[in-house]
Design a protein around this nucleic acid. Structure first.
Lengths: 244, 244
DNA sequence: CTCAGTTTTTGAATTTAATTCATAATTCAC
DNA sequence: GTGAATTATGAATTAAATTCAAAAACTGAG
């Protein structure tokens, strides 16, 4: 069935084109002014064609977010394979997440948006499932790091399984991103934008988990060096995205 | 100006009516199907009247979320005044937050929604500012607890100010809520719905902050008792909401 | 109490933008 | 090459937020 295959390939290609253009438009003007008809036009297709790929605007947004998170899987797997301690890996995941946020602010906003009841429920069930399926390998990478740490006696199991434990740093990252993204909320208080704060908090959590080696959290210089080092280490993973 | 006063009072009353009805409709059917015209009709007013109070649908949603968070201030202040240790207070804040989530699931979804770029930017600047202003006393209560803990030598300052430190548990709560609310995400993995997990994670964080007295985190029975006790203690604060 | 002026309310008309679908174009199998 | 099947098109439809001209209610002076 070479014919069917070719058609399918072209179909996929067109879908990527739609998503590319949508990402571009969102990066340029935000999610708010994205419209279906102009998007189709910008890709030289009719509105109806767009709807052959996405059951609704929300469906398209989920698809876009899902594609973004595919990059994350590779990134995370790459980190898991680095020759650093398990605790450093966990830290590196957060650094990578943060670098992602900064490199693609609109991705972060999109992610927040799609998990909203209003958007989530307006997408097709298949698309929702795709996102959930994609989170699975992501969660597995993180759980794997936790599991390895437990096996290596760097982390006590605390009477929990690896996945449960991995949720703690995950939640902290998600929450930090949410708070930081909420324009003007943190900055409205004394809360300046100390970019290391999130990592200090993470180290507190990891210390509390008894994840060895424990780390001092009042030494800004050391923390700063550590993060800078990890950022350098992760830099290669972010190179390829320029092409995408 | 008694006349002006009376008019203003009635205006406020009508605004509350709109918000009450909107909350009711949202609780009943979700945010998605809320429509302006039916809402106005349900309150026996014309559509245009609704727009005399709220510049847009999003503006109304912010107003609603803001009113909800006013309750939180009282709740939080009540907790700060309880005769328990500073660490228990911090824990109690999270318990209260979680109780809120469960008592009013739609509030939680609304809160997530309004901080979304799309919604936030569609509301009036005044309304946004109101939300930020309302968060201030909230943040102050939490910072106050942290500050007191530092003064009482129950918590090392770690070279940070109280607000910065208070962001850590806050972010953890926010992130946990987000993950938990995302229907099917956590449950798609092994992640069952252990309701104590969030508190275990919080204790890990507090331990990592060296917040005294440190607590064992592998003892499920003790944790369970502790939370149940706090829930009982907080019960009174949730009584009055039935009238509202 | 009455009336001109002012403010407020009304809800039908307008607008915006997503979604659909009858028609046209293309592809495919024979 | 031809008719059936599939796919693309974009104008028409629909849904719902928002506006605004007209009507109603209110105001305070005479």
């Amino acid at each position: 069935m070479t014919v069917t295959e070719r058609k399918e390939r072209q179909r996929l290609l067109r879908e990527q084109l739609f998503l590319d253009k949508a990402a571009e438009l969102i990066a340029q003007h935000g999610i708010l002014p994205l419209q279906m008809a102009p998007l189709a036009k910008a890709c030289d297709y009719a509105t109806g064609t767009l709807y052959q790929h996405f059951s609704s605007k929300e469906d398209l947004l989920l698809a876009l977010a899902n594609r973004n998170s595919c990059h994350q899987i590779q990134l995370f797997q790459g980190i898991a394979a680095l020759p650093i301690s398990s605790r450093e890996k966990m830290l590196a995941l957060c650094v990578a997440d943060h670098m992602n946020q900064q490199a693609h602010p609109s991705h972060a906003g999109l992610e927040q948006y799609i998990f909203t009841e209003v958007v989530w429920k307006n997408a097709s069930a298949a698309r929702r499932q795709a996102i959930i399926d994609n989170s699975k390998p992501l969660a597995e990478v993180v759980s794997g790091i936790v599991q390895q740490a437990i096996i290596d006696n760097e982390l006590p199991a605390h009477n929990c399984d690896a996945f449960n434990l991995s949720v703690a740093p995950w939640a902290l990252c998600v929450g930090t991103n949410t708070l930081e993204r909420t324009e003007g909320l943190l900055s409205a208080f004394g809360g300046n934008a100390d970019p290391l704060q999130r990592y200090r908090h993470l180290h507190m959590l990891l210390n509390g988990m008894q994840w060895q080696p424990l780390q001092r959290i009042d030494d800004r210089v050391e923390l700063s060096k550590q993060i800078a080092l990890l950022q350098t280490l992760l830099e290669p993973f972010f190179q390829c995205e320029n092409t995408a």
